[in-house]
Write a protein that binds this DNA or RNA. Structure first.
Lengths: 114, 114
DNA sequence: ACAACATATCAGCAAGGAGTGATATGGCGC
DNA sequence: GCGCCATATCACTCCTTGCTGATATGTTGT
């Protein structure tokens, strides 16, 4: 088993932090969750997630740029889809970890509960 | 395969976001990385990570409360350790996902590059 | 060309969250 | 009990980030 990185300034840690940051918002997770179910157009995502259109659009911009989603235009519609099955793996493993620490996470007052 | 959650207000999504938030900081990841290698006392973590003592202490408080780490006092020293192997699994998952999206994540200007 | 529809972008605001320097608290040795 | 060492906490500052309402841009149908 390789050594784990502990240098705050290392590229690995920076990248990891950035990627985790991309998942660390309820609205973002709602969009990803919807897309894990099936590919969807923006207005469909707006409907599913109950988020505002500009908000959804802005999140999608970031997801697209990060390579977490991909898109195809169909006339007026742009359909978005998850770009890698590793995303669903990550969500499952977060849930597995939550099984162990849910109580603590809930009790912790360090991050907002939105 | 179960349905993925897309309701921004659901407890599942809130919890996930909160847990991801706990990993979404380079300093936090540096501490976790060090602890994945071996159990350490605060001053050792300060040394390894090059972070300030109050900073390390504050992060540890949160990690402890969330149940991500556990601690044992040895006289003057309090040694901290990772509480679940699922944490290392999650880090591996993120690395696997980064293999696919590193370029995009790096290019994305949406989150700070610390 | 124009209107309707779908989506992206912009500017501004408010809240969240990380870090620091100083200080408080707890354990140990004499 | 006191001084030293280890660690926790506090108050404040500053930067980051998410969202909104308005507007811009792109596509389609007539």
């Amino acid at each position: 088993m390789a050594q784990f990185v502990d240098d705050r300034k290392s590229a690995t840690i920076e990248r990891r932090a950035k990627l985790f940051r991309g998942f660390a918002d309820p609205s973002r997770l709602a969009i990803l969750g919807a897309l894990c179910n099936e590919p969807l157009a923006v207005h469909e995502l707006v409907e599913r997630t109950k988020l505002s259109q500009p908000n959804v659009s802005n999140h999608l911009r970031c997801l697209l740029e990060c390579g977490l989603v991909a898109s195809d235009r169909h006339g007026r519609f742009i359909r978005y889809r998850i770009s890698s099955p590793r995303i669903t793996v990550l969500l499952s493993d977060v849930d597995a970890l939550l099984d162990v620490v849910a109580e603590g996470v809930e009790a912790c007052d360090n991050y907002r509960e939105a």
